[in-house]
Computed example of a mutant assay.
Amino acid sequence: MITTTFLVEIDSNIPMVLLGDDHKIRQILVNLVGNAIKFTNNGEINIAAALIPDEKKLDFIRISFTVRDTGIGIPTDKINGLFHSFNHMHPQGYEEMNRGTGLGLSIYKRFTELMDGRIWLAGTSEKGSTFTFEIKLPALSQE
Rank of each mutant, 00 (worst) to 15 (best):
T4E: 01
T5M: 03
E9D: 14
I10R: 11
I10F: 01
N13W: 06
N13D: 10
M16Q: 13
H23K: 11
R26S: 13
R26Y: 13
L32Y: 00
L32G: 04
V33K: 07
V33W: 02
G34Y: 00
I37F: 12
F39Y: 15
F39D: 10
F39Q: 03
T40I: 01
N41P: 00
E44F: 06
E44P: 00
I45L: 01
N46V: 07
N46T: 09
I47W: 01
A49M: 04
A49P: 05
A49V: 05
A50S: 14
I52E: 01
I52Q: 05
P53S: 12
D54V: 01
K56R: 13
D59S: 14
F60R: 15
F60V: 05
F60Y: 14
I61K: 07
I63D: 00
V67F: 08
R68A: 07
T70S: 15
T70R: 07
G71D: 03
I72Y: 00
G73Y: 00
G73P: 06
P75G: 07
D77W: 13
I79V: 15
I79Y: 08
G81P: 04
F83S: 02
H84Q: 12
F86R: 12
F86T: 08
F86N: 15
N87I: 03
N87W: 02
P91K: 09
G100A: 06
G102T: 05
L103Y: 09
G104M: 15
G104R: 12
L105S: 08
L105C: 08
I107C: 13
I107H: 12
K109T: 08
T112S: 15
T112K: 03
M115P: 10
S125M: 04
E126D: 11
E126Q: 09
K127P: 03
K127F: 07
K127R: 11
K127L: 08
G128C: 05
G128Y: 04
E134T: 11
K136S: 14
L137F: 12
P138E: 03
P138G: 07
L140V: 09
S141N: 13
S141G: 12
Q142I: 05
